[in-house]
């Protein structure tokens, strides 16, 4: 019995510390993707301004409340608009942004293939 309890305890401890580390990583990942709105070109993660510090606390809160990464982004997007997100997701505003470089790459490849390369 004692042995079992010990096992369960260690298991809990391990999983708990894992969880904590995970939360820390998620927090860093999320705050790196948020723009510190009162700073110039800094992410919330990089900034130590009042605004960024509060935002970090709030992100922690939201994570412990069990919100997923996407839900947290959505929450901040509602408050502050797309401007706060460093990663402009693929939506109707950003189709061109994401797809144009790839399209240009394909066109470039096609031109090279067509015009320059001879196959044996």
């Amino acid at each position: 019995m004692k042995f079992f309890r010990f096992l369960i305890m260690t298991f809990l401890l391990i999983s708990f510390s894992n969880l904590k580390a995970d939360n820390y990583d998620t927090r860093n990942k999320i705050t790196k993707n948020l723009r510190c709105l009162i700073c110039q070109g800094q992410s919330v993660y990089d900034s130590d301004s009042e605004f960024a510090n509060s935002l970090k606390i709030l992100v922690d809160k939201k994570i412990t409340e069990g919100l997923t990464e996407d839900q947290i982004y959505k929450y901040f997007k509602e408050k502050y608009g797309d401007w706060i997100l460093y990663d402009p997701g693929l939506n109707k505003n950003t189709y061109i942004l994401w797809l144009l470089p790839i399209l240009l790459f394909l066109i470039g490849g096609a031109i090279i293939y067509k015009n320059f390369i001879v196959r044996k």
């Binding site: 790196k32 993707n33 723009r35 992410s43 608009g81 797309d82 401007w83 706060i84 997100l85 460093y86 990663d87 402009p88 505003n93 950003t94 942004l97 994401w98 470089p101 790839i102």
Partner: peptide
Amino acid sequence: QKISVGPPFYHKL
């Protein structure tokens, strides 16, 4: 519409 294009965009592409 104002959007930010930050490191994640460049890294992904």
